[in-house]
Design a protein around this nucleic acid. Structure first.
Lengths: 153, 153
DNA sequence: CAATTTACATAGACAACCTATGCATATCAA
DNA sequence: TTGATATGCATAGGTTGTCTATGTAAATTG
């Protein structure tokens, strides 16, 4: 039952469902992908557009579009890179930090009823889950797949 | 450092990133949400539209739209419920099963380079991750949140 | 300095959602 | 039975998220 064959699919399915559930039930005003980008900016600090695209595993135009929305909301600042006039350095504004915090609070509120039922050992298992997914992402970054985004054959 | 305050957010962030990464790198022809719905149908068996919406944590019109796409691809069948003329019973077709299998193979292929590096104990940790997320989803279903989808206040 | 590459923006398309609403059938009450 | 209400699904219309293809300006390179 626990063949490696199904393990990867089960992991992805559970992760997708948890994300889906959280994005459906957590009530906050920041659209999902924009919240993801705010969190990434908070983690990386001021970054170029292309660096954000790479870190987020999305295309550069996608990030450009999202940044326009974040900027329209006043959540990020934009500065040209003194070393390269083509490049733009994006950073979180005060309001962006605040928006990110509100997202985190909302998510926590929605998960709390479930998390609060857990005891110490169960919390350790949650920590394992986080670590495992992060490790897989890191390993995947090291050993990239043959053809990233092809759809036909 | 492992305060419960951040644990939930970290879990959701890692789950979202893993899903994002997989949907970006796994190359198959079935759109992400449609694959999710195929998997759900495979798991639940023939189901009503509203049952699928509830199980997927999405709205009924969303499921209706996705089912129209799945039906256009020949992946599901539609039958009226003999007990209730308003209701429709959806089931996977042969082609739907095949499509789901191809999705699973593609996902596995994209995760394999990372999974193959893991030894037995590491695989056990993956299993823990899956179980933890499933348990949290089940717990969340038991203890629903006050106001599911409100955005203002 | 011309050619190429790099960094980002724009254009256009589709998928994935949502809320509001419509329509048909079921159910319930009188 | 029939009118009111509830339920199950479809439709309408809009926003968000994402992609590929392409354009533009600046950097790099021969």
């Amino acid at each position: 039952m626990t063949e490696p064959t199904t393990l990867g699919n089960e992991l992805l399915r559970s992760a997708a469902r948890l994300s889906r559930w959280a994005s459906r039930h957590a009530s906050f005003d920041v659209p999902f992908a924009q919240a993801r980008l705010l969190a990434l900016l908070d983690e990386l600090g001021p970054s170029r557009v292309s660096a954000l695209a790479a870190a987020d595993h999305s295309s550069q135009p996608t990030i450009t579009t999202q940044l326009q929305r974040l900027e329209a909301s006043g959540w990020v600042h934009r500065a040209s890179d003194p070393d390269d006039a083509r490049a733009t350095v994006i950073s979180l504004s005060e309001e962006g930090h605040a928006a990110l915090e509100s997202v985190r609070r909302a998510r926590l509120a929605v998960l709390s009823p479930a998390l609060d039922q857990l005891d110490g050992p169960a919390l350790d298992r949650v920590r394992v889950a986080i670590d495992v997914m992060n490790e897989l992402l890191a390993a995947a970054a090291d050993a990239p797949v043959p053809h990233p985004t092809r759809k036909d054959g």
